[in-house]
Each structure stands twice: as structure tokens, then as C-alpha cells.
Design a binder for these strands. Structure first.
Lengths: 197, 197
DNA sequence: CGTTCAGTTGACTAAGGTCAATTCCCGTGG
DNA sequence: CCACGGGAATTGACCTTAGTCAACTGAACG
């Protein structure tokens, strides 16, 4: 395990909670280095493997499959944690798939290690709370966007400064999927908002 | 404060975490009894009042206002906690309104009391984690439903056993709003699925 | 150069939105 | 007991926007 990679993870965690060196040591021996080739899965639908991943670089998408159609709910970039959170929390098989869109480097650790950290340390328990709160805020925003905004408005939101990463780094047909529309419709929306005849 | 009401709250909390009597006492002195008349707000858009409520009886809706249109994201019934969670976590003014659909009885306590409990007790910190995890699971499900399912499929989901409460206790035009469609469209969907000409 | 795949465009369909009229339900007051 | 009023739900006519299917374009890569 590259020390720089570990430092990236520790730094990301410290944005949520201050860990003592002692707290950090509880986790560090369980970390493993992983690589995914483009197109490989971090977790596939129906599986129960409950590893948490931390993205060092690369990007991934998180999607559900329904009636043979894939519906993308999230994209992940470097410095983010990934997991089938629903599956880890409930112990049920994953209903979603996390797929590498590019080659990825990750750090992994088992969800059950995180649970044991919750038991052993108030600081880690706090990390768990902050992580779940962070997720809930993100989900609330995504949910409200789907309910309140039209597909066109959702597309315009992606153009705003803080969201540019998706527009810049994700192919358009996957952006359409994320917006809940077909690539054909996104193409028309783009023409509409560009003002061109 | 009615002892039965307090027992309801303690029981609801104990579904997430086991509290000692000592932990419970940290909260109990901060509890206040509240009533809302039908149509009154627990929290209104733009406000920052950060009280957590626990519904003893009655029901409420949780909605955003966008371009003068109200969009309902949730309904709450007895034995649930209500708050503008986003506002409490971020300290920003609430973007949503929680309105009593019927007369309601509630128990209230300030969000900042909960934060102090997090600091003082690992058990309360765990409660905070479990609460956020519970919320995240609910939000994930609602978000995925909006992305994956058609309005008609979403309506059919509400007819399933565990969701019946909404169909039985909420007027149809608000159900339509919750589904993201107009009352007119819901009426047509109902006719379609009933098979009647 | 072909092959391939993403993106665009056109023609047509399907489903929800809008507006307006009508019916249904229910409570209240004569 | 009945008539009336008001809000909820339904229905009809028409509009708007996304979906579908298919053809075409363009850039990337061998």
C-alpha cells in the first residue's frame, strides 16, 4: 500500500471527523489496494460482497437495472467512497451495480471492519454518522431534483460550476441516462437550449 | 408531558439503539409538548427553526415550492420523527415546508440538544448514525423510484401492503403531487389500471 | 479506407399537462 | 328532510414533450 494513497484516504476522512493516530491505526491494517479495468464491476447486482472502496483515481457509475434497462443514479470520481450502501446496511443482495467507466485505482476495506470500528470508538461512530448524513443530503438533493425539475432543468443544473465534472468527463449517453431520459431526447434538449434552429 | 407520550418516543428510539436510563435522562428534560391545527406548519420555507418533532398522532406532508408549485416529497404519520433535516445539518434556511394535514400532537426538542447528546454519549452518537442511515435508505428508495418507475408504476407500488397507509389516509390530489403528476393524470391512471372503459 | 460507436435528425407515437365543464360527495343551514 | 355550496374527482378536447425507430453524420482506430 502506497503511503500517499493512505494519506488521501485519511485526509478524506478527516473532512468529516478528526481521528487520533490511534483511531486511524484501527483501520489501516485492513486496507487493501485494488484496481479495476474499464468495464469491470466494483459490485454487481445480486451480489453481497460488502467492501467499501475509496477512489484514488478513475470514475465509476452506480446504476439499477429494471426491465433490462440500466438507470444511472450516480457517478463517482476520485476521493469518494463507493459501496452498495443499501446492501451493506441491510445485508440484502445488492440491487445495484457499480461499474468502472475508466481504469480505476482504489483502496478497499470490508464493511464489517467499519462496523467493528463503530463499536470500538466514539470517533469512528461519529464518522459513520457524518458519512450517513452526507449521503442523506446528497440523496435528498437528487431526489428533489427528480421530483421538482424537468429533464431540461436538470440538464441546465449540470452545467453549473460545481457540477461541471460530470459534463466534462462523462459521455453524453450516460448523462442522458442519469437525467432519466434517452440520448435522443438529450440531444434535442441541447439543441433547444443552445437556441439554434 | 404525558408519560405515555414520552414512552412512545423512547420506544421509537429503542428500535434504533438501546439507551440506558441515564442516556434517556439526558434528553427527557428538553422535551416539550406541541399541537398543530390542520393547515399549520411545523416548519416553513425560509425559516431556520431547528426543532425535531415526534408525531404522536395526526399526519403531515413535507414539500418543496418551485415556481409557485408545491411538490410533496413525503408524508409522515404517527411514531415518526419530523424535521427539516437538511436545514438542521447545514444551518441554512429550510427549503421545504412541513404542513399538518390533520390536527397533530407532537413532542419536540431542539436539534442542538441532539448535537450535544452526540458529544456526550456514544449511544446517542450511534442513534444519530442509525437515524441518518435509516433516512438515507428511505431517500435512496424514493429517488430510485422516481428515476426508474413510470408514474403508473409508482402508483401501483403505493397499493402494496406496506404502503397502504398513504392511499387510505391521504387525499388523492396530494397523492398525485407525491407521484409527481397532476390530479387529472392520476385520475386517468386509476381508470387505466382498473381496466374500465 | 472500412468498421464501429456516439451523437444528431426526422417522422411518428404515447403519455402527461392544461383548460374547462361536469359530476360526485359531504356538510350545513333553511 | 331537502336544497344548496364548495371542494374533490372525473371526463373531454387539445397541446407539449419525451419515447421509439430508423437513417445519417462524424470522429476514432485499426
Amino acid at each position: 500500500m502506497d503511503a500517499n494513497h493512505k494519506a488521501l484516504l485519511r485526509n478524506a476522512i478527516s473532512r468529516l471527523v478528526q481521528l487520533t493516530d490511534q483511531d486511524w491505526e484501527l483501520l489501516v491494517s485492513h486496507l487493501t489496494y485494488r484496481q479495476l479495468k474499464r468495464g469491470e464491476y466494483w459490485i454487481a447486482e445480486g451480489k453481497k460482497e460488502q467492501q467499501i472502496g475509496f477512489v484514488i483515481n478513475g470514475n465509476l457509475r452506480h446504476y439499477y437495472t429494471h426491465d433490462g434497462e440500466e438507470k444511472t443514479t450516480y457517478f463517482y470520481f476520485e476521493n469518494h467512497l463507493i459501496s452498495s450502501y443499501f446492501s451493506a446496511l441491510t445485508g440484502q443482495p445488492s440491487k445495484l451495480t457499480i461499474e468502472a467507466l475508466t481504469d480505476c485505482q482504489l483502496i478497499a476495506f470490508p464493511y464489517k471492519v467499519l462496523v467493528s470500528l463503530y463499536d470500538n470508538s466514539h470517533s469512528w461512530e461519529r464518522f459513520g454518522r457524518k458519512l450517513a448524513e452526507y449521503l442523506a443530503l446528497g440523496l435528498e438533493e437528487r431526489m428533489a431534483g427528480l421530483l421538482i425539475l424537468t429533464p431540461e432543468e436538470r440538464y441546465l443544473h449540470l452545467l453549473q460550476e460545481n457540477k461541471k465534472k460530470i459534463i466534462e468527463r462523462i459521455p453524453q449517453h450516460l448523462i442522458a441516462n442519469y437525467l432519466g431520459i434517452t440520448p435522443v431526447s438529450l440531444s434535442r434538449i441541447r439543441r433547444r437550449v443552445s437556441g439554434k434552429k
